[in-house]
Design a protein around this nucleic acid. Structure first.
Lengths: 352, 352
DNA sequence: CGACGTACCGAAAACGTTTTCGGCGCGGCG
DNA sequence: CGCCGCGCCGAAAACGTTTTCGGTACGTCG
């Protein structure tokens, strides 16, 4: 219904006085065709603005030059988290695009035929995507695991995938947290609390682990009452910080490391509500370095994560899996993070 | 190469003891098939986890249930602007997904065959997308116009498209600027400057126009030296504001309306550099209401734009074009904006 | 009892490619 | 001079669907 007047390979054949097979070979740079005919056909194609039908090609080659993207934008949280995923998406688009791939962003919810055929694997094979990238999904979901174990190459970002055509990319989350507490410890803090992220996500888990390790390295004791759990969003940071700051004066942390910048913002707010000055009365460090962080007042000290880099890395992982279709390749690639010190961290005030 | 063991309709036919035609009709809910066979086939399909081959279907129906997205993420600016486009993308994905469509995010740059077949129209027809959504492109680009005038339904966001299968969505940009100016005027400001956005984009143009209209409505004169032009990003805001604030004391504006929040951030910085207190010495209002705005200190007064709403609207426009394939429908849909007053605006200080 | 409508289904064409398998003509080698 | 090989090309099958066009077997109506 879309384009009725499509110029097909058949037409080129007719006009060029050759067979369709020859046209196909000529256009795709195959060997078995004389330079003259090749040029003639290509010229013809140019004139008629010939456009190959991807569907036909896909049908016979069962390859599509398209990689599918499963991205759960978290219905619950209308706004946020997005900044993160979408920077990743840009990096992904960039490197995959350069390699000649397009991205199929799976969105459809309504099962078109009778059944609920919306399993990830089904949707992937339905469209013959060459590979799949997963973000924001639950790695324990049966469907996710089925996809990972299938024959379609898949890579997860911040999402641990297992299967011999699967791999994943992530940041040095634990290392980042260690950096944060080391920084704080070096400043002289001794009661360093944390607000963790979702504990069923890899970053959430790893950042919490890094916090413990950091404490250990600094010779500080881990204390249960100094860790609260959030969900990466502002509100949960506010909530966790409130509980932390309402501890008795001599139990109250002098520093808080949040597992995300958004939660750090919540912490800042909780501090403000109580009249606590940052960084004088309380130091805080975030995680991510979203745009907001630099423009806060004071600027937020945080662990910078290379979001676009994650996307690129995911893209390269896809490419790698596509080229060497052997299972090989690094199963997980981890990106470095960087502590960027701004205005929310300082030595603890003297009165303690 | 991907999936060798695909269960085809043919197999269902064999196993079900019917013809392929019947299977197709049974699965697609056509009339001409007895309830018993239908149920039997569907059951079979379920058991074998049958997944239709989108490519084959597309090939014969020349429809794909996929809408293409052309999104120029502006290479020049690695980071920003994204927050805007991507919120739009989320809205788009949401409403189109609900209607059973997937999104093809065009990324490929490398022309696969000999020629540079990367014209928008070519890429759209190549994949048989049912419609196309354009964001961040130049409406005057020949290729863009060719797409708009083609037979594939297209909708632009913040991008004026013409063609009888084309339409576009945008915000009340001029109205937003008027709101901003009116607010400032009501506070008592008389020297209100502006920093416009890119003047080859519709929002840039309209916001500037709104500024002039707002001035007129408030009975204020338009003065050339009070308008600077930027590109929506922080740096240009800083630059423009610097020039504005370096005017002689009695020429210097007491308020600046920026055509984007990012530029407003630049303005804030310029003010800080000069030791000017906001809002005491200078009022500033932005445009967009990105997440950052609420968390700035003080909070940025700005014109809120419903970004996800733009996406939804674009989605609905697509749907409309798809259903009534008559050219009809509102050619342009404009979303309301809202002034949200925070801490960066106040009456001008008395000394003037 | 014959004709006809109806409900269900099969055969086959079509969509636009890629790719295999030869086949033809011609030059070179033995 | 006969053969082989090679460069170039055509024919045709295949990919997995949808859809048209009948065709069969009934039951029904006149």
């Amino acid at each position: 219904m879309a384009t009725t007047g499509r110029t097909t390979i058949k037409e080129l054949a007719r006009l060029g006085g050759v067979s369709v097979g020859t046209v196909s070979r000529a256009l795709n740079g195959y060997a078995d065709v004389s330079p003259e005919t090749r040029e003639r056909i290509q010229q013809l194609a140019r004139e008629l603005d010939y456009t190959p039908a991807a569907a036909a090609r896909t049908l016979v080659t069962s390859t599509s030059h398209v990689v599918g993207v499963f991205l759960d934008t978290g219905e619950g949280h209308p706004d946020l988290q997005h900044p993160f995923f979408h920077e990743v998406l840009v990096g992904l688009k960039e490197t995959l695009g350069r390699a000649g791939y397009d991205l199929l962003l799976f969105a459809s919810e309504a099962p078109r035929n009778g059944l609920g055929d919306h399993s990830y694997l089904n949707r992937a094979t339905q469209h013959n995507v060459d590979a799949a990238v997963l973000m924001g999904l639950d790695p324990h979901d049966d469907e996710v695991r089925r996809l990972a174990r299938s024959s379609v190459p898949s890579v997860g970002v911040d999402l641990e995938l297992h299967g011999d055509r699967a791999s994943y990319v992530t940041s040095e989350n634990a290392g980042g947290s260690r950096l944060a507490v080391a920084h704080l410890a070096a400043l002289g803090h001794r009661r360093i609390a944390t607000i963790g992220g979702l504990l069923d996500t890899k970053p959430g888990l790893d950042r919490l682990r890094g916090y413990r390790e950091g404490l250990a390295e600094a010779g500080l004791a881990f204390r249960d009452e100094l860790v609260k759990n959030g969900d990466f969003y502002v509100e949960s940071g506010l909530q966790g910080a409130s509980e932390l700051l309402d501890l008795p004066e001599d139990e109250r942390p002098t520093a808080i490391v949040a597992a995300s910048d958004l939660m750090a913002v919540g912490v800042l707010r909780a501090a403000a509500e109580r009249g606590l000055k940052v960084p004088h009365d309380l130091s805080v460090v975030g995680f991510d370095d979203i745009m907001l962080a630099a423009h806060l007042h004071p600027g937020l000290t945080t662990v910078r994560q290379d979001k676009a880099g994650l996307g690129s890395a995911a893209g390269r992982a896809v490419l790698h899996a596509l080229e060497h279709d052997v299972p090989a390749g690094p199963h997980v690639t981890t990106l470095d993070v960087e502590l960027v010190v701004r205005g929310t961290t300082a030595p603890p005030s003297a009165e303690h």
